[in-house]
């Protein structure tokens, strides 16, 4: 009897997973977490991130990763979306380094920005910098990346709030 109940429970769960509506599955995927609490603790222990309040961290170079995006993701999670491909996105730069490497790249890019001679543009109180890293640091993913054979990328784009060190987003391009 127990075995029958167990089998029925498993069958019910599988049917639920396979039979759920596509929109709900897509919403769930879109709200996936891209960095776990354990991974954040690891970055903190390595000294790459210093807690700076609720859902806020500072990097070694003083960049502030704080707040949440309009979808409710932490800013850190928003950036770490680029640690893996999102094939359904029209365009998606993907880092080919570890998550610790992403934080290191942010600091490296910020040092280059502060040193000057980095192209920038401004809009709506934000500044977008394009920083050449001199080596491949990722690849083009998403639908456009797939169409083009996922070419390697050697630059990063960093968007910050003007007049601050608060990062809005950071990704390979």
């Amino acid at each position: 009897m127990k075995r029958i109940l167990f089998a029925l429970t498993i069958a019910f769960c599988i049917a639920g997973i396979l039979g759920g509506d596509a929109a709900a599955r897509r919403k769930s995927r879109d709200h996936a977490t891209f960095i776990s609490i354990r991974e954040i603790r690891d970055l903190e222990q390595k000294g790459l991130l210093v807690p700076a309040g609720k859902d806020a961290w500072k990097t070694k170079s003083g960049l502030l990763i704080a707040g949440r995006d309009p979808d409710g993701r932490t800013r850190l999670d928003h950036i770490m979306r680029h640690a893996s491909d999102i094939p359904g996105r029209p365009k998606h730069g993907v880092f080919s380094v570890t998550k610790a490497g992403v934080i290191d790249l942010m600091d490296e890019a910020w040092k280059k920005i502060k040193a000057g001679a980095v192209p920038e543009k401004e809009r709506g109180g934000k500044i977008a910098y394009t920083v050449g890293m001199g080596r491949p640091i990722g690849y083009l993913g998403g639908r456009k990346g797939r169409e083009r054979g996922n070419p390697k990328l050697a630059s990063v784009r960093m968007v910050i709030k003007k007049g601050t060190t608060a990062v809005v987003t950071f990704f390979p391009m």
Binding site: P70, P90, K91, R123, K126, R157, T169
Partner: peptide
């Protein structure tokens, strides 16, 4: 077709 943001050249523009 979704519009790619002309500023960051990465994201898609959503209606809000």
């Amino acid at each position: 077709e979704s519009i790619i943001c002309p500023f960051c050249e990465e994201g898609s523009l959503n209606r809000v």
